[in-house]
């Protein structure tokens, strides 16, 4: 075990875990932030997507020892009041069905829009291809990203 002072959603938390513990389980089991989801554990589905210093990462495959003092942002910390343009667009387009993958989709999309504020359809496909939605809400996700992009632009 080792002690890590992690910056999670703007607050520093002291967490005592084994160095190889994936950030996903640190968030879910230790920080009690369950918005970040477990889907596959091997970085194939994107349900566990978080931001490390603003960039989308798969938290299931990211050992806590590699984070250092970088800022971790989860779906709970994406916006203060749950009103990030993407979150609002997700509600407006009624995107979710089961909803399980959507936090990962939103976090991945937020990283995309940060780097590319006006993505084309092909840009969205390329950036979002690692995020599986088993319910098949891909078209709505694309529409919601475009709406958020316009609002942010």
């Amino acid at each position: 075990m080792a002690i890590y002072n992690l910056k999670i959603n703007g607050k520093t938390q002291e967490i005592d875990v084994a160095p190889d513990t994936p950030v996903l389980w640190v968030l879910r089991d230790h920080a009690k932030l369950t918005g970040t989801k477990y889907g596959c554990g091997i970085g194939q589905c994107g349900a566990c997507t978080i931001h490390i210093d603003g960039t989308a990462m798969r938290s299931c495959s990211l050992p806590v020892s590699s984070v250092g003092d970088k800022a971790i942002t989860t779906i709970e910390g994406l916006s203060e009041a749950g009103d990030h343009p993407l979150q609002e667009a997700w509600v407006e387009h009624d995107v979710p069905q089961c909803g399980y993958c959507q936090a990962g989709q939103i976090m991945n999309a937020a990283s995309l829009l940060k780097n590319n504020p006006s993505p084309s359809d092909a840009d969205i496909d390329a950036a979002m291809n690692g995020n599986i939605c088993r319910c098949g809400t891909y078209l709505r996700i694309k529409s919601a990203i475009k709406t958020a992009s316009q609002k942010m632009g």
Partner: peptide, 18 residues
Amino acid sequence: KNVDGKKIATGQPLFGLD
């Protein structure tokens, strides 16, 4: 709209795993 839409988009604990 889905009555749980906002909760889902903000990562509220809704699922069994949560």
